[in-house]
C-alpha cells in the first residue's frame, strides 16, 4: 500500500508540559484515518506541524514523499486542510475567499469554486461577505476551501465543529464519496467519537502526546461493542484510570 503521510519521530513540547513525543504514524492511500484523543492530547499540534503552522523540535512529516520541513511547497501542493476554526477574510465574499486560494493551484477555475460551494451547500451564499456567517456556515466554507484544489490528501481538525445534524451528515457523505471515488486520503481529528466511528476506516488513539494504538475500525468493532469502549480500554490499558469508563 502506498504511504501518503509518514510521521517520523515527531516531537514538539510546550512550556505547559503538553505536546507530542516521538510520534510515529503511517497513513495509506484511500484511508479515512481518525485521530482520536481527548482535548490537549496533541492532535492539533501534530496537524499544525503537517501543515507548516508550527515547526517540530525533532522528526519530520513526509506527505506524498516530500518533507514538510524541507520542501514545504511540494509537500503541500496536493494537500487541503482545515485546522481548528475555519478562518476567512471577513471583508471578502465566500466566492472571493475561495478565489484567493484558487490562485495557488493551477487548474482551479471559477467553475470549480462553484462546484465546491455547491458540494458544501454554500452556493446560495456565494456573494455574501463572510462577516455575517454563522459558525456552521464558516465551517462549511472552510471545508469547501479544503477540497477546492482536488487534493490527494485532506487534513481536517475537528471538521464538524459548529455543524448541525444535517451538516454533519452532508460532510460525512462528502468525505466518504471523495475517499471512494477519487481515492482521496483523509486525516481527521475529532473528539466526537460516534462520528469518527461512522466516518473513518482506520483509527489512531493519541493520548498525552503519544500514539497508543492504530487499528482498523472493522477490527475494533468486532472486538468491542462501540468505538467508545475501545477508546476507554486503550487509554486505561496505558495507565489511565478513568472514572467515566463504566
Amino acid at each position: 500500500m502506498e504511504k501518503v503521510i509518514e510521521i517520523m519521530n515527531l516531537t514538539k513540547s510546550y512550556g505547559n508540559g503538553r505536546g507530542i513525543y516521538d510520534l510515529n504514524l503511517d497513513i495509506y492511500k484511500g484511508d479515512i484515518f481518525g485521530f482520536l484523543g481527548p482535548n490537549g492530547a496533541g492532535k492539533t499540534t501534530a496537524m499544525k506541524i503537517m501543515t507548516g503552522l508550527i515547526r517540530p523540535e525533532q522528526g519530520d512529516v513526509r506527505i506524498l514523499g516530500h518533507s514538510v520541513t524541507e520542501e514545504y511547497e511540494k509537500a503541500l501542493a496536493k494537500v487541503g486542510c482545515l485546522i481548528e476554526i475555519a478562518e476567512s477574510y471577513h471583508y471578502l465574499s465566500a466566492f472571493d475567499n475561495l478565489r484567493q486560494l484558487a490562485r495557488y493551484y493551477p487548474g482551479v477555475d471559477h467553475k470549480r469554486i462553484d462546484e465546491v460551494l455547491e458540494l458544501t451547500g454554500m452556493l446560495k451564499f456565494k456573494h455574501e461577505k463572510t462577516k455575517k456567517f454563522s459558525l456552521g456556515m464558516k465551517q462549511r466554507l472552510g471545508l469547501a476551501a479544503a477540497v477546492l484544489s482536488r487534493p490527494q490528501v485532506v487534513i481536517l481538525d475537528e471538521p464538524l465543529n459548529g455543524l448541525d445534524v444535517e451538516g454533519m451528515i452532508d460532510i460525512r457523505k462528502m468525505i466518504q464519496h471523495l475517499a471512494e471515488k477519487e481515492q482521496t486520503t483523509f486525516l481527521i481529528s475529532s473528539h466526537l467519537i460516534h462520528d469518527v466511528e461512522l466516518t473513518c476506516n482506520r483509527i489512531g488513539v493519541i493520548y498525552n502526546g503519544k500514539i497508543l494504538n492504530v487499528e482498523n475500525t472493522q477490527t475494533i468493532l468486532k472486538n468491542y461493542a462501540t468505538l467508545e469502549n475501545y477508546f476507554v480500554s486503550e487509554v486505561e490499558r496505558n495507565g489511565r484510570v478513568s472514572s467515566s469508563a463504566s
Binding site: T51, G52, L53, Y72, E73, K74, A75, L76, A77, V79, C81, I83, I85, E87, S88, Y89, H90, N97, Q100, L101, Y104, Y105, A145
Partner: peptide
Amino acid sequence: NQNSMRITLTRPVSR
C-alpha cells in the same frame, strides 16, 4: 490577531 494568516500559510507557498 484575526488568525487569518493561517489561510495563506496552509497553502503551498513558502513563508
